[in-house]
């Protein structure tokens, strides 16, 4: 059992937790992920590590409440336990040779982008961050990003905070204005990453994307997380989760991600009904 030592609501649909898992905390690096199960008979879900505290042996996770499992996870309080927590899995984000980078985060993906930005800053790299959200209420981690970015641009779809528009607009401006990024690192919804790549490719700016496909074991056994990268089959759990954005087949990945859409919808509705019943 793994203790939730800290829990904080970041916005109405995004929660942060620090989980006591000292072995994982010792090893986890930016870009790697963990797999957890909330309770016995629960699903295994992958979440990218949002930070860790080696001293106290805790690993930070930030998740969006989207389906049955995240609803159940969010129902757990500080001091309670979850059944399973395993990691760190996948390969860390490559930071070698990067002197100047642009980190692009979308929505809850910012939680994963933050440790990458922080790591690069720590290594003495110049970091520009562009983070995007649907609206003001959903903005998370602004302070944290400020602390590790030489320049921070916040975008909202409706213009209720920061600049109005999508993350690719300021990215394109920066590239065109002559910012010579060694690497653009994009983490967020598939469709956002697809458009980031479409933005950087014409200028040939190397772009890394962090893929988060359907996964079960996370150790290279089930093959559920397969992607097509550079025309070859790759497994996000052992070959990734970071890949060269120019090579990823996003359309296929988006299609595969919707495999259980019906099931997820039903789960969400069932859970909501359950909560409604409890409330009554």
């Amino acid at each position: 059992m793994y203790k939730i030592v800290n829990k904080k609501q970041l916005n109405p649909t995004v929660t942060m937790m620090d989980i006591y898992a000292p072995l994982v905390a010792q090893k986890a690096l930016a870009g790697q992920f963990i797999i957890l199960r909330v309770d016995e008979d629960g699903e295994r879900i992958p979440l990218t590590v949002a930070g860790c505290d080696k001293q106290n042996g805790t690993v930070k996770i930030i998740f969006q409440i989207v389906g049955g499992t995240t609803i159940r996870l969010n129902a757990k309080e500080q001091g309670e336990y979850i059944s399973d927590f395993v990691g760190p899995l996948g390969r860390p984000t490559k930071t070698d040779g990067i002197k100047k980078a642009c980190i692009v985060g979308g929505g809850v993906g910012c939680a994963i982008a933050l440790p990458v930005a922080a790591r690069l800053k720590e290594l003495g790299c110049e970091v520009h961050s562009i983070i995007g959200f649907r609206n003001k209420d959903l903005v998370i981690l602004e302070e944290e990003f400020s602390a590790c970015s030489d320049r921070l641009t916040i975008m909202t779809d409706d213009g209720s905070y920061g600049r109005q528009g999508v993350v690719t607009a300021p990215l394109k401006e920066a590239i065109e204005s002559g910012e010579n990024y060694d690497e653009v690192i994009a983490i967020g919804p598939l469709v956002m990453m697809k458009f980031v790549v479409a933005t950087t490719k014409p200028y040939n700016v190397p772009t890394t994307v962090s893929m988060n496909p359907i996964m079960i074991d996370g150790t290279g056994m089930c093959g559920g997380c397969r992607l097509t990268v550079g025309g070859k089959m790759k497994f996000a759990c052992v070959d990734g989760p970071d890949f060269d954005g120019f090579e990823v087949d996003f359309d296929e990945a988006m299609q595969r991600a919707s495999m259980y859409a019906d099931f997820e919808r039903a789960e969400r509705e069932a859970s909501c009904n359950l909560f409604k019943k409890e409330a009554q």
Partner: peptide
């Protein structure tokens, strides 16, 4: 890692490795 055949269509929805 599960093997696949390398034929077209192996990434379609409804294709599983036996392991999965």
């Amino acid at each position: 890692l599960p093997r696949f055949m390398g034929i077209p269509g192996e990434s379609l929805k409804g294709v599983y490795s036996a392991n999965e």
